[in-house]
Write a protein that binds this DNA or RNA. Sequence first.
DNA 1: CGGCTGCTTGATTACGCTCAAGATTAGTGG
DNA 2: CCACTAATCTTGAGCGTAATCAAGCAGCCG
Lengths: 246, 246
Amino acid sequence: MSNSQTAKAVSLQQLRQNCANCSLHDLCLPAGINDQDLDNLDRVVAERRRVDRGQFLYLPGQPYTSLFVVRFGSFKSVASLPDGEEQIIGFHLTGELLGLDSLGPGKHQAAAQALETSSVCEVPYDQLERVAHAVPGLQRQLLNMVSRELNQEQNHLVLITRKSARARLATFILGYARRLEARGHRTDEFTLSLSRYDLANYLGLAVETVSRLFTSFRDEGMLRVERRRIGILDRDALKRESDHCD
Amino acid sequence: MSNSQTAKAVSLQQLRQNCANCSLHDLCLPAGINDQDLDNLDRVVAERRRVDRGQFLYLPGQPYTSLFVVRFGSFKSVASLPDGEEQIIGFHLTGELLGLDSLGPGKHQAAAQALETSSVCEVPYDQLERVAHAVPGLQRQLLNMVSRELNQEQNHLVLITRKSARARLATFILGYARRLEARGHRTDEFTLSLSRYDLANYLGLAVETVSRLFTSFRDEGMLRVERRRIGILDRDALKRESDHCD
DNA sequence: CGGCTGCTTGATTACGCTCAAGATTAGTGG
DNA sequence: CCACTAATCTTGAGCGTAATCAAGCAGCCG
């Protein structure tokens, strides 16, 4: 009895102050919010939820009730096409928000699937809205993050429409490295959480093409490639490939 | 003197209550806002500004201070590429918001250029934020519209990555007609505000391809095509083309 | 009328897809 | 532990869609 009480106290304690102590502090919603307001936000975060590789966080059509933040791991956003195929419209690393596109329609537009063992913070949207109303900084930060998402989407659109297969992959690798860097990981050597299939789908290419490109880049001395383990050997060359329009 | 006073009074009167009387009421920011709050919003709308064909409403890099709503006419959003080329990432009809992607970064990410003689409402962002803080419905509506923009962007991404040139054009035509319909225009006959060049750019195709597709669709009896004047003859056939993946 | 821009049409080429098979790794159960 | 299967990835050959290159045509303006 006393045991369970203690456990409950600890868990409450964990729920509180977690945003303040979280390493994602700057990447996440709390960015630019003072300590007191942070506490308010903290109270709203309902749950930290674990999602195993391949599991869905939500499916299209489900009602949109919560906003999710990736605590660790990674997710892909997948849209289903009429012909049964799927299109990956985004993937999300630590600190990034999930499902902002569903905020307007009120129901999820895409599926969110974990690429590896992952964890998310779940923030019930109506409560977040309530807190945001009291905390202008949070409101602004929320808008900022949706806007940022819009920007990423636009950059990706330009990537797909204007760049060659080589440039697409090079851009992706560099962008991926940059995102890891912002999260404090080493940037010259990393493992992709995406399969070749997912990567190809995301870049609007065939799997075979992506595979061939990896071997090309390896043969040309730009990358070390060993399955999903990637090493960047010549960043400048990659940059050139990336900039190379058409 | 008395003359100028009268003029000023009239102009103030015009500025007030314009949102309430505006035909875009339902499409625009005021959607779902009660009369009193509407008056608050109304006070914030600084200016109705005319923009002639080819004129820029803003350029990339300029500070983002105001949100714009299209009152009539149409605009394209254009991103500049490193090689001097440009990519049209969106175009905006009556009632649609402009520059939501720049809300986060604080400076404009793309240029907005009028496709025809157009007019916009300018809403200074800091004032809008102030009003939105007092009016939860407005805050929500603002988020909804950014989210909707995100959705459109995603749909466009899927269009570009997964569909053939034929399907892209067919989808565009139908979508364009639907958007006109929502604005009370006839849907079987209309004129495109985009040039072939812009249309091709937006759809990620070459001008020649778009031109060829128009003649194909005409020859197959789906469209009437006369320069930018388009008539839809067989909506079902267009729909089939549009759905036809790959 | 000439000069300009926007659009159409034709011929050729190339980039990346499809189809097909093999190689490597991971997962599973006897 | 190894055999077996399934999944993931790589490599090769041929093809197709849409881009590119190159004129020619129509509308629009001074």
